[in-house]
Amino acid sequence: MNATRLRLVLLRNAPVALFIVVLAVFGSLSDRFLDAQNFTNILIQASHIAILGIGMTFVLLTAGIDLSVGAVMYLSVALLGIYLADVPPLLAVPAMMAAGALFGLVNAFFIVRLRVAAFIVTLATLFIGRGLALWVTETRMVFYKDHILSLARAEWLGVPWAIWVFAIVFAAAWLVLNHTPFGRQVYAVGENPDAAAKAGINVPLVLTAVYAVSGACAGIAGFVSITQVGAAASSFAMEKEFAAVAAAVLGGVSLFGGRGGVAGTVFGAVLIQTVQNGLVIVNADPYIYPLVTSSIIFLAVFVDSQRSRILERLGRRRIRIEERPV
């Protein structure tokens, strides 16, 4: 029994241990890796995936999935580049969020009202979103003006602009999920939608809201990403939806709803980016980046599934008490 307990403790802390191992390995291979500037870089590079993942977390918590977020990112930057090119960022970002949220509402309409599986709805709107974006850009590369590109280097109080956005989104999402009635209802709906409906929670409203949140986050992520990339090709943000899911899952968010949180997702996004950054710094063969990243995600999911199996076994009702009770 004690061995089981020990294994549980180890498994629960495995992602953090993994992070420490990653830091130690790259730290010993390169002295540039552990300096503050590099960590700032990691945070900047991780910011758009983290923001995307935060939105995805809302959806995953309700046992849904949003595969359209990459397309929404592209669509929102396309709108920015074509229609909002001269608008100051303070107005452009809300506009992009609104566009993303609107897109999310369309997803929600099909998922909530017509009761089509989220996977297939957002798969379809992924195509549609990319199509719309290509239409807006007339399939050309979109370039951005200086007032947007300059944000890549902009700082406030010595902290880069992208990190501020990242931090604000994270803080807002954390507050909403943990300290508002809506946030707790998101968890309730994900745990058991029938029970939530019986308890009087407006389940359709909660579900609609999470897809809108996911869309809005994709809008912000698009903006943050474009300040770093500088131009949007037709492959912009391709397959970012998988990166967002991976970050969330790495951070302990369950695909079956109700478990996990945005802090975990941010941790997951940063961990993935740390590994990528470390591989660059130690001059690893660029072709092995995806191999290392996917192995780490695999490992994290493996650990998590072993942990829940042990927990399930321990949770089984015992009829006789023969050893010390659990």
């Binding site: 507050l175 009635p181 209802q185 968890y187 309730a188 029970a195 939530a196």
Partner: peptide, 29 residues
């Protein structure tokens, strides 16, 4: 079948549809 959410705390289950808020206009619990 009980209508409780195992992932939430006892108090959150008690108030899931009627959380006391910090103020009428403040959305926080």
């Amino acid at each position: 079948e009980l209508n409780l959410f195992e992932n939430l705390s006892i108090e959150e289950n008690l108030f899931i549809t009627g959380f006391p808020r910090l103020g009428a206009a403040i959305p926080f619990i």
